[in-house]
Design a protein around this nucleic acid. Structure first.
Lengths: 226, 226
DNA sequence: TTCATAGTTCGACGTTAACCGAACTATTCT
DNA sequence: AGAATAGTTCGGTTAACGTCGAACTATGAA
């Protein structure tokens, strides 16, 4: 990463294999943690941290803290466009690489994110709530609407109790497999708990997988339609 | 220039300051000799030779021998497009050389992008063609409509000749200053050439600036209205 | 032929930056 | 509170690559 004019700096940033691997991984659109990116690049966490710092200070990446995780994603569409162009040129030159395979499909579908539901079903729940105007707000700040409060109570959530706590009721949480948001906060926890109580799903030991039964998934999809 | 997958190799090639300077110089569209490129990069001839070899074997540059001179130029339009995109990103990140002279606004307005017109006027030309349904297609794939073909011929383009070549007639190219597209491909080259022939603009030496005369700009704006 | 210009190849040097171990902070789980 | 997980910072080592001097090839001019 030498000193240099204009495009040289960008080129050297992209030119390091470890950083190139990270950027390529982030081209999926997902936000990834430092550890995941380290694994993706095949370097230790310390080395990855150093790379990520450089990529962030040069505004190729942006970071969002979430608990003890740091989620990295491409800074904006322009970065993606440039990488896409580079990959296209590389492909034409016959320099393509075979990318690594997908991860555990069950984890992808539904899993616990600390204390709330994540994965495809978690994202779908959040999308459904938003589409029906049961929650409102932008990507960083979410709240239940009046209709949403009624819905929650009908679903079996003791909403008044949640409100008493200092912990935020609604919070968006960036998803691990999809890059979309899902529902965190005390409501997120309560929803997952209620899903267990209803017998829709069970937690598997030694895993973050949330295993829905057939009937449970059907009921879930009916309760949270797209 | 480390070993590495896909984009890392390209990145490291562009990432060296000397090579970046060479590539930038070649973005003017002119073919330059090894000595000229060495001077441009601020290195000795031996060093330049080494760089040029790398750029050539990775097919970013091509070489034509002419007597005891070797003329280098960008390998194809794709290389130019990638460099243009990188320059745009660098500009947005404020990583551009601080040497912003009086040239800067002129460059923004109209410049050569390898072999076709870029800058505000380049974007306007493309927008105008699109708005009047003379070209059609999405961001990645563009083509002349029937009306567009007539327009091109009337403008003085020998369209039949262009069609014979394997090179694409119409291609979009992402702009450096605006983030919009402008027209590349053999038609883009021909249009710029025609603009010169009409006397609307002249190329300045040692620069990518396309200098329109007052009358030339007026005629251009009339030919490509928004 | 002889000289000059254009460019390549080789070898050695020096700078740079990626890398990891170890120690440190921060957040969460029990 | 204590253990565990996630990530950062620091320092020293190592390997890579750009750089140039010198010697070499090739084309053109006198």
């Amino acid at each position: 990463m030498k000193e240099g004019p204009d495009i040289a700096l960008l080129g050297s940033l992209i030119g390091d294999p470890a950083r190139a691997n990270m950027l390529t991984a982030l081209m999926s659109g997902k936000a990834l943690t430092a550890s995941e990116l380290a694994a993706e690049a095949g370097v230790t966490l310390q080395t990855a941290s150093s790379h990520l710092k450089k990529l962030e200070t040069s505004e190729l990446l942006r970071q969002r803290k979430q608990g003890r995780h740091r989620y990295f994603s491409l800074a904006d569409d322009d970065v993606g466009a440039v990488l896409e162009a580079l990959m296209g040129l590389a492909a034409k030159r016959g320099l393509v690489r075979t990318r690594t395979g997908p991860k555990d499909p069950a984890l992808r579908k539904a899993r616990v994110c600390y204390n709330h539901l994540a994965g495809e079903l978690g994202v779908q729940m959040f999308d459904s709530l938003q589409a029906r105007n049961l929650v409102s707000g932008d990507a960083d700040h979410v709240a239940l609407t009046r209709a949403g409060e009624n819905f929650a109570v009908e679903f079996g959530i003791e909403l008044e109790n949640l409100k008493k706590s200092r912990r935020p009721v609604c919070k968006p949480c960036l998803d691990w497999s999809a890059r979309r948001n899902h529902l965190a906060g005390s409501l997120g926890t309560a929803m997952l708990s209620r899903i267990h109580d209803l017998g829709w799903a069970k937690r598997l030991d030694d895993s973050r997988i949330v295993a829905f039964s057939q009937a449970g998934e059907a009921a879930f999809l009916k309760a949270f339609p797209i």
